[in-house]
Amino acid sequence: MSAVEVAGVPAAPVRRVSTRFLRSELRLIAVRRRNQVGLAALAAVPVVLAVAMKVAAPDTSDRPGGGPDFFAQITGNGFFVALAALGVELGLFLPIAIAMLAGDAVAGEANQGTLRYLLTVPVGRTRLLAVKYAGIVAGAFLAPLVVAVSGLVIGLILFGGGDVTLLSGSQVGFGEALLRLLGVCLYLGVCLSALGAVGLFLSTLTEQPMGATIALTMLTVASFVLQQIPQLDWLHPYLLTRHWQDFGELLRDPVSFGALTPGLLSAGAYVLVFATAAWARFAGRDVTS
């Protein structure tokens, strides 16, 4: 008896949702060589950054406040290597990583001709899409964590740890600072998951993974650019990248979680709209390759 018949029986006993498909998808993402190299590149940025700061330290201490955010504090506390690296990579590296995953998710399978084989296994298209998105979300949470951990390790080795000065000028112990850093990573994970939903939709539109990847990267960069144009301030609340920098709210004292709500709501809205759009496109289209 075939799987179609099983699904068609209305009074079928409650079927336990198997995680096998999800596990196989995650394993597939993890063993892909380009994903491993990408992750290594993400982890390399904080190392380069920290070494550069170590070598050039005497110069930069003369002009405090120079360089991007958190750079000035790096020489005082290795903790800030992680934050500075996250701030730098958020502009391009992290979105590219997500774009790569999203491009592979559906368009990649279609390009390799493996999508139709996937569709012959007894899972619905909706479930297939859900598993693909789960894979992207896993990547979205893993990528900032990798950057943070790599930054922390190299920062502690080169500059040492200690009490961390927050944006408000008060100090917290290293343990609490780590907790806040974890919060920053989770927040960025949510933001990147929203980006991943847009990427999933783009991925269902094409059979060229590179097309989806480039489109999503361009979208991110365009969003960052539009954000800088004051004449377009009516558009700003709707931009995908609008609230990404809000992760700084977690570094204030006291933390105002209310300030994170707009970012989380906006991310939720993007996920809702683009995940359903991906579903509408994918479940309805003819898979020819």
Partner: peptide, 24 residues
């Protein structure tokens, strides 16, 4: 965006803190 300027008055002490160049 990733900084803060604080003016704090506590009794007769007034502090001005700028996180961008960590000066007080």
């Amino acid at each position: 965006t990733l900084g803060e300027t604080d003016v704090i008055r506590n009794g007769s002490d007034v502090w001005l803190w700028r996180s961008t160049d960590s000066s007080a």
